[in-house]
Design a protein around this nucleic acid. Structure first.
Lengths: 368, 368
DNA sequence: TTGAAAGCGTTACCAT
DNA sequence: ATGGTAACGCTTTCAA
């Protein structure tokens, strides 16, 4: 590859002058300009970006590290991030690069090191795995410009945008209660995710708020200890695992004859699996049991050939949008206060919830 | 940020020695090692990767540029690329970074420049947009290590893995013919994609091969001239556009009373839209018209609440897998011959195709 | 075992 | 308007 030195030499001028031309600075005569242009063309010269970054101490790049770039809902985040960067400032166009950690802490650390080693000006980290908490704590302490999305680590001064999972789970459960259900189960998610506890929390709070007794036997956390084995499979996709867990736990409930009136799932994916299990034994959703999920996984629904499910929509696009904007802003304002931005979820009523049979027949009784 | 100089200073040794320690080279006394370790810890030192890359002329990174990172099928490519890089060599772990060009040539060019400016050792380019052909030609001539996926530009010496779209379209059409259909329409894709022509080609060849007359009025190419307007929308997703075009063209066929016996769609997405249009007027798929698509867009099917569709599966995962491996290999063997790897598609029979009614009743006649 | 110095490809300051 | 030179943070060669 030709360097600026080669160009200068061929054009018969100094490196400084070529550099000035390259950066649209004044003080380059028309004659020099012509010679430089010719030399650049002749040598097919392209400036070396990392040399540039090295001296400028600036890369104009944001790195995004995602736990699962193949997740069915991740497109929302991507869109939000890109729009956010695009809209932020016309002449401050940041490059965005994505890294996929695949839920592997080692790999995540590798990506993080890679990016922080002068590769990018700031990092957006998406995911709430519990077991890389110490890693992220370290990251925060390193003072590298950072934006955490959906990872509400405590006690530290860091920018983050978090989604109100507790509130969302509350609303979901409330929706079921309002429909007249009382025996409401909760089938939780992977305990390796912080949000899993939040969602259970919201569920419990809603029950308490409406004086529905909390029945421990109706709070179910599937076993995710074999994740690593699943991952080794050639056709592994995370959504299949959640689907399977929903299916398995539902089967157990059916066998134990403990099918509840309604179920709040920590994720739509498990709801899809459970619905399959119910269909297999002739249980109808929502007539026999109402089902509400979380995440609005409408893309995944197709993979599992599942009916449209009532769910809590996460504003992941908005999260990406505001997250990257705040990050870019803080790059220009290093002393800006760190912020914790809280976003709300939204109830999307579809075809998997309906009024409780008791309630319905009671109404009919009244009419008669 | 602390530099190697700071570490050397604090440890009371030279930069050279620290560098040697950092790179696990022999010739560092135990005492020095101890001092260096202490200094690194104290200063929270991390080596600067781009300075390192600058002198080493190597980044150990591969850049992936994708036209639409949010496409419903892109996860296959991602998985293939990552597995390929992972499996290639144990101690040659390449970092992989993704850039999303969003089908925007400007942005693609920006990403390409960014990556080629010393950021990565090689680039994988996915997509077959026709209007960035000259850009890619330039890229090829720049001699930068490159792997083209699904972009069969001609007459140039470049590594590429292409999928046999002509053959796939042939098989799809053949499938319909074998089911007894004769009046077979083709609803094509976006003419901005090279593969669109290939797929029409395969369709025509299959008809000719089986002596089915080619009826020009049954070859339909939807108008995609308003793409840019669609893109500006806040909730734009490419799959919606293709869905819409399938819907619209099908409506036209229905209104003109020209519904064929079977249709081969250049993409499942349009098939989904068309099926909706048919459902609306009571036409049944596959009983009344058989439908075959392309791409195996099972994830998108859910978004559109569409039944499982017979389709041609593209081996995109395999494409990523072999593509990145060949690229990494050629990084280590600069004079290895460039290759064109051809991958085949696979027929996936699902619920949208069945034997032609004529054929079925003819059989019945025979029995009677 | 250790260190000095040159060099990777830029930019920027200071002269001229 | 132009050029020399130091600097960015690292590796590597050569010499001690």
């Amino acid at each position: 590859m030709a360097t600026i030195h080669d160009v200068a030499h061929l054009a018969g001028v100094s490196k400084s002058l070529v550099s000035r031309y390259l950066n649209d600075q004044k003080g380059v005569s028309p004659e020099s300009t012509l010679k430089i242009i010719a030399a650049i063309k002749e040598l097919n010269y392209r400036p070396n970006g990392i040399a540039r970054s090295l001296v400028l101490q600036k890369t104009h790049t944001i790195g995004i590290v995602v736990d699962d770039l193949c997740a069915t809902f991740i497109f929302r985040l991507i869109e939000g991030l890109e729009r956010g960067a695009e809209d932020f400032d016309v002449d401050e166009k940041y490059n965005i690069i994505f890294c996929n950690s695949n839920g592997d802490v080692q790999r995540k650390q590798r990506h993080l090191n890679f990016l922080m080693n002068g590769r990018v000006d700031g990092i957006v980290l998406y995911g709430s795995l519990v077991y890389d908490d110490t890693m992220i704590q370290q990251l925060v302490h390193s003072n590298f410009p950072l934006m955490l999305i959906e990872n509400d680590i405590e006690g530290t001064d860091v920018n983050k945008v978090v989604i109100d999972n507790i509130g969302g789970a509350f609303m979901a459960t409330e929706h079921l209660i309002n429909l007249g259900h009382r025996r409401i189960a909760h089938i939780g998610g992977n305990m390796n995710l912080k949000i899993t506890l939040d969602r259970m929390n919201g569920y419990v709070r809603a029950l308490q708020r409406y004086n529905v007794p909390v029945d421990q036997s109706l709070i179910i956390f599937p076993d995710f200890s074999d994740v690593d084995e699943w991952k080794k499979r050639d056709e592994f996709m995370s959504q299949n695992l959640y689907f399977d867990r929903g299916y398995v736990e539902m089967k157990k409930l059916i066998e134990k004859n403990q099918v509840p009136e309604a179920i709040f799932f920590a994720t739509d994916l498990s709801a899809f699996g459970a619905i399959k299990a119910m269909n297999e034994v002739g249980l109808r959703v929502p007539e026999d049991v109402s089902v509400i999920g979380f995440d609005d996984e409408f893309r995944a629904a197709g993979s599992f050939n599942c009916k449209p499910v009532t769910t809590m929509m996460q504003p992941l696009k908005q999260a990406g949008y505001v997250g990257i904007q705040k990050l870019v802003y803080s790059l220009g304002h290093p002393h800006a206060a760190k912020e914790r931005i809280l976003l709300n979820t939204e109830l999307v009523v579809r075809e998997s919830t309906c009024a409780n049979k008791r309630l319905a027949s009671a109404e009919q009784d009244t009419r008669v």
